[in-house]
Design a protein around this nucleic acid. Structure first.
Lengths: 338, 338
DNA sequence: CTGAAAGCGCTTACAG
DNA sequence: CTGAAAGCGCTTACAG
């Protein structure tokens, strides 16, 4: 630490001396209080109060081989982090779930190669007990591979392409969700349904497109598919492209709400009514869904549940169990756009 | 860690044995390579490669009493973090500056009481060598006090109200910046200049208002002051209130760009031309400044410089020096709104 | 330049 | 229920 004149921090030995017990007893008190008599317990508690003792996490980690902290690893850029609200929801959800169990969360952003290298070093060095892997893109197989090979427990958010069998994960049922939205659009009498799909290197992007295609069956028209990168801007561009190509479309399923919002902006600019002439459906039920005009009809992803399960599964793996996989259902939320 | 069948991680002893040197030599190699012969160096390097040795950070921290990591402590809610882009810029800037010196950053959000308690425990327990304190509000004197009392080095971003003498900090020259913007507005011939001030419990809010008042001198009219909380919405509401109270204002200085953007939205809705009838000036030069219509004239805060200096000063304090304070100038950026 | 040894502050069988 | 002792994996004077 800093200034040399800072008094030495009290240790278990100081507490033990003060309480008139052994260090072992103090340690037992610190770790749940099992096998310590009421008298000893009281004495130790008083001694801790009196000395102002604080446990030294490094000494403890060295002895236990545990850090009691996990990493939230986001392989995205700063820009994406702040643009896509889903990340914030996952951060908040996992952070809360972890707090309840008293394990701390260290947040790691690895958008560039240099950052990925540092993240790999940090994680494989043993700074954390496990990692919550959050990133839509399949990218960084190298990073994930190295973390996995180092034996560090990992639970991914969404299906980690290329690692679906090796890692545990919890994902929303994208295929079924996409089918449900598509069916909803058809139930409205729409027949020329287009989709603004997500990135091809994300499981969500792939599966939502699959669900869309499956539900449409014979009615599926490859010309009515345009890909975006989940950003608002890309949704707007995709909508424009779709309109040029097929002016007769009467509905659009966007693979996330941000792109749906972009599409809505493009339609508004062109004076095309929603849902009058074109119905629009999104995915996520992000905050933006209620801020657009008209408000978005969308598929709700259970982010809180996803966060909780990720934490639960990760803690299980850390405790020595084999990694589990979990798929959670989504819900149709009907608002005004479709 | 987890599965009991994971092979034991190699230690310095393994490397030493492999290289045919002592553990001390391996350690010296690991810490800069001073006082180790070229032969020993080569042998150790080879042994590390062969064994796949990774340093154990906890053992090292226990021995050195250093963690080689610092905290980025943000006493704001998740909502604010994602709404105010300044936080993201500071995160990125400090993160980059720290990466260069190979110290890691642990990000801590302490918006609620429970989170503040956890943050305090984490920090005073010795998980990090120091903290970069980022939060506009004076709030949490308790948290700051306890961290300070525990002897943990702290450098604040902006002047930490109540701790301006105790902690080191680096701040933009808010008073001068506000004066400059106000002078710019007057130079445009505006005479009824209002301000949407920042929160009263932030040094930025206070000082930008002070600069505004000082520059106006006799012309200052307390009726033309409305306070916001730095959010876009509050800027819009403040603009509306100002207009109700004084329909004749011909210029507005908003204490940050987000509020300026809110004000612009309100003016647009009322069909009031900018800068035609009312000129609008902001503060920050955030990304939003070039996205509004018209583009915002604003005071640029040197966030990159602020980030770098914060890191430099914190590392100094950690190294044992007394905390320094630093005020950085801002620059007028003239665009279209004033 | 190098090695032996002590020390950093905990935890955890083990014996009692 | 409790204490003595070993061990976790490094670093750092110290002596050579």
């Amino acid at each position: 630490m800093n200034s040399g004149d800072r008094p030495r921090r009290p240790t278990v030995s100081d507490v033990a001396a003060e309480a008139g017990v052994s260090r072992g007893t103090v340690s037992r008190y610190l770790n749940g209080g099992h096998w310590v008599s009421p008298e000893a317990e009281a004495a130790v508690a008083a001694a801790i109060r009196k000395t102002g003792y604080r446990i030294n996490p490094h000494a403890r980690s060295l002895a236990t081989q545990r850090t009691n902290s996990v990493a939230f690893l986001l392989t995205e850029s700063f820009e994406r982090l702040f643009e896509d609200p889903n990340f914030a929801r996952l951060m908040r959800g996992t952070s809360a779930a972890l707090a309840e169990r008293d394990v701390s969360l260290v947040f790691i952003l690895a958008g560039s190669d240099a950052e990925r290298r540092r993240a790999r070093d940090f994680i494989t060095q043993g700074h954390v007990d496990g990692v919550l892997l959050v990133s839509s893109h399949a990218g960084e197989p190298g990073l994930i591979e190295e973390i996995h090979r180092a034996g560090v427990p990992v639970i991914a958010c969404g299906i980690p392409l290329g690692f679906e069998r090796k890692l545990g994960w919890v994902a929303a049922d994208d295929t079924t969700g996409a089918r449900e939205m598509t069916a909803h659009l058809r139930s409205l009498g729409r027949t020329r349904i287009a989709t603004i799909a997500g990135p091809r290197d994300t499981s969500g992007g792939i599966q939502r497109l699959t669900g869309f295609r499956e539900e449409l069956g014979e009615a599926f028209d490859a010309d009515l598919v345009e890909h975006g990168d989940y950003s608002r801007r890309s949704g707007r561009a995709a909508m424009a492209a779709l309109l040029e190509r097929a002016p007769d479309i009467d509905a659009v399923f966007a693979a996330n709400d941000l792109m749906a919002a972009g599409a809505l902006a493009e339609l508004a600019e062109r004076g095309i009514t929603v849902p009058g002439r074109i119905a629009v459906g999104g995915f996520d039920d992000a905050a933006v869904a209620v801020e657009t005009t008209p408000a978005l009809t969308t598929m709700r992803q259970p982010f809180d549940r996803i966060s909780q399960e990720m934490v639960r599964l990760l803690l299980e793996v850390i405790a020595g169990e084999k990694p589990a996989r979990m798929t959670l259902p989504t819900d149709l939320v009907v608002r005004d756009s479709a």
